[in-house]
């Protein structure tokens, strides 16, 4: 790993200043993806700005008709939160499936969605629930946030401060895990919301996406059978040694059916 200058600001304002002053700075939250990336020398930042000492980025609160999670909140904290379990149990379930025990105690929601790994779990919940991403500059709707593989709508130096999830009527998440990486080979988040059915798919394509076919099928009939009957096209889906595009396409409707059956 190449060396870098390290900063540990205690406020969002100071973090923004630090990245502004760096020639090629990077934020690190839990670092569960960034540190392996640095060790492989796939990134060589001049400065690392640690967001983990910023109290205002942490915590979970019930807000209006939903729940707001600070960007530096860990997966374990979300998985174990009584408020999350009560308001959106599917979100707590999803957090409990990320990585492994140790990774969940360091990894954060803000880090996961800022990184936007095409096989990460959180983007499916953020898009599936139609969440709002709050930054130090603005609010971004989930539908506008994810821009494809490892790309988001965040500007240079912009910091995610929290994610607000509106409470759905019902939601479920099921994942077929790649057993070595623990990422989703495919993961499907289904939600019945006031604004209609939303289905978000991770792992199957170059980035998280909504499945219009599944949304239409579940809109008429929110049952596992309705999801199971949807034939997903393999066109444009990922294929690798772990699974062909056709296999992933089949997993999408299978997991959508399981997520619908489990939805609460």
């Amino acid at each position: 790993m190449h060396n870098f200058a390290f900063h540990r600001p205690t406020s969002v304002a100071d973090a923004a200043k630090a990245i502004g002053a760096a020639s090629d700075g990077k934020f690190v939250a839990g670092g569960q993806t960034l540190l392996p990336t640095l060790r492989q020398r796939l990134a060589e930042p001049s400065d690392m700005i640690d967001l983990s000492a910023i109290a205002e980025l942490k915590g979970i609160k019930v807000e209006g008709d939903g729940i707001t999670i600070g960007a530096a909140t860990t997966h374990t904290e979300v998985a174990n939160s009584a408020d999350v379990k009560k308001t959106i149990p599917a979100l707590a379930h999803l957090a409990s499936l990320i990585g492994d025990h140790q990774v969940r105690q360091r990894g954060t929601i803000g880090g996961s969605i800022a990184n936007n790994d095409p096989a990460a779990d959180y983007p499916a919940a953020v898009l599936g629930l139609g969440a709002t991403i709050r930054t130090n500059k603005r609010e971004i709707k989930a539908d506008d946030f994810f821009k494809g593989m490892f790309e988001t709508d965040l500007a240079e130096g912009e910091i995610i401060t929290a994610v607000h999830f509106p409470k759905p009527e019902k939601a479920g998440y099921e994942k077929f895990r790649q057993p070595a990486s623990r990422f989703a080979l495919v993961g499907v988040f289904v939600a019945k919301t006031g604004g209609g059915i939303r289905v978000a798919v991770t792992g199957a394509g170059p980035g998280v996406f909504r499945s219009k076919e599944l949304e239409a099928a579940l809109g008429g009939n929110f049952t596992a059978d309705a999801a199971k009957g949807v034939k997903i096209s393999a066109n444009g889906l990922n294929g690798d040694l772990h699974g062909s595009p056709e296999y992933r396409a089949s997993l999408v409707s299978t997991l959508a059916a399981r997520a619908t059956a489990a939805a609460s």
Binding site: V28, L35, D50
Partner: peptide, 20 residues
């Protein structure tokens, strides 16, 4: 694996300076 404030984490995946 070590404990950071009582919780198991992977010490190869964290900078020493982050443990301040």
């Amino acid at each position: 694996t070590v404990h950071l404030n009582g919780k198991a984490i992977k010490s190869c995946n964290m900078l020493a300076l982050q443990a301040e």
